[in-house]
């Protein structure tokens, strides 16, 4: 795909600070003024536009069901959520499962595990799903300032991946192959020739939802789409990563080297990668109709 870097730079720029951004922010503000928030409209908005940073935490909390649609209930519900977190946190201290020196993300993991009734016997042993939780928590910690908000967002986001997207996530490698074939069949052929297709960093891309792969400023724009109901967007981010680093990948001729490179991609161009991925996703899956 021959792309025009100038055009992409401009569209990223306008999305962030330009006229389009201002209009979008206004229409989101109108949506947020309703006494009872319209979840469906908020979903459509997030699918279509990047969320302005100042409203991101609020919208994510509503979409993930941490706070209910009625404004009037928000204070009461958040008070309850806060108490719940504190109760469990205190319990973990009593049984000496956490100490003052325990890192915040590990505290989140233990609180989450206790709430599910799945606190492990041996805390020093981490399962793959614990590592996924920790990676997502680390990224969320960079995006969300308030500890209580952050815990609930991590916990509900992980639950969303494990429940709502449980059946879709294993399908994504196959879908990735389909779209890569449409966009650049030569690159796909190269990856297949190196037997790299089965060894791509799928855990990092799909299970961790790019946490630890993309810097948080780019990542949150992907999570806007995932939280508002599309896990397919992450396939297009993967496609764009492959397309962006095509030259580098073609120069590498072993699956191990390709995987190693993709697990540590350069962090300077990721905003453009995400913008192109969103464009590609809209191109293939259509743009959701947004009515305010």
């Amino acid at each position: 795909m021959a792309e025009d870097p100038q055009r992409n730079f401009r569209s990223v720029y306008y999305e962030k600070v330009g006229f389009r951004g201002v209009e979008e922010k206004k229409s989101l503000e109108i949506l947020l003024k309703d006494d009872r928030l319209d979840i469906e409209k908020l979903c459509t908005f997030s699918q279509r536009f990047p969320l302005p940073s100042m409203y991101r935490t609020l919208v994510w909390k509503v979409l993930l069901g941490i706070i209910p649609p009625h404004h009037e209930s928000h204070a009461l519900v958040m008070k309850s959520r806060k108490e719940q977190y504190r109760d469990v946190y205190h319990a973990l201290q009593v049984i000496r499962f956490i100490k003052d020196s325990t890192p915040q993300v590990e505290i989140f993991l233990r609180v989450h595990q206790l709430e599910l009734g799945k606190l492990p016997h041996n805390p020093s042993f981490l399962l793959v799903k614990d590592e996924i939780f920790l990676a997502i928590a680390k990224a969320m910690e960079e995006m969300v300032e308030d500890t209580i908000d952050c815990y609930w967002l991590v916990s509900c986001f992980v639950n969303q991946l494990n429940n709502k997207y449980k059946d879709s996530l294993p399908q994504l490698p196959k879908i990735l192959e389909q779209y890569l074939n449409l966009e650049d069949s030569r690159l796909l052929a190269h990856l297949k020739a190196c037997s790299a297709m089965s060894k791509l960093p799928y855990n990092l891309w799909f299970k961790k939802c790019f946490a630890g792969c993309l810097p948080e400023s780019s990542l949150q724009r992907v999570w806007d789409k995932v939280i508002s109901g599309s896990c397919k967007i992450i396939v297009f981010v993967a496609v764009e990563i492959l397309l962006t680093f095509k030259m580098k990948i073609i120069a590498l001729n072993s699956a191990e080297k390709i995987t190693q490179f993709l697990e540590n991609i350069p962090q300077d161009n990721t905003d453009a990668i995400v913008s192109k991925a969103i464009d590609l996703w809209h191109k293939h899956c259509g743009t959701p109709v947004h009515s305010v």
Partner: peptide, 30 residues
């Protein structure tokens, strides 16, 4: 509307109760 609002509040309080119950179970094991 009133019903939906009530459900929203109830869910949060119920989840807090369930967490408390899990804590009791964890303490028992300990």
């Amino acid at each position: 509307d009133v019903k939906i609002q009530a459900r929203g509040q109830l869910q949060a309080v119920e989840s807090r109760y369930k967490a408390q119950k899990r804590i009791t179970q964890t303490f028992e094991l300990e």
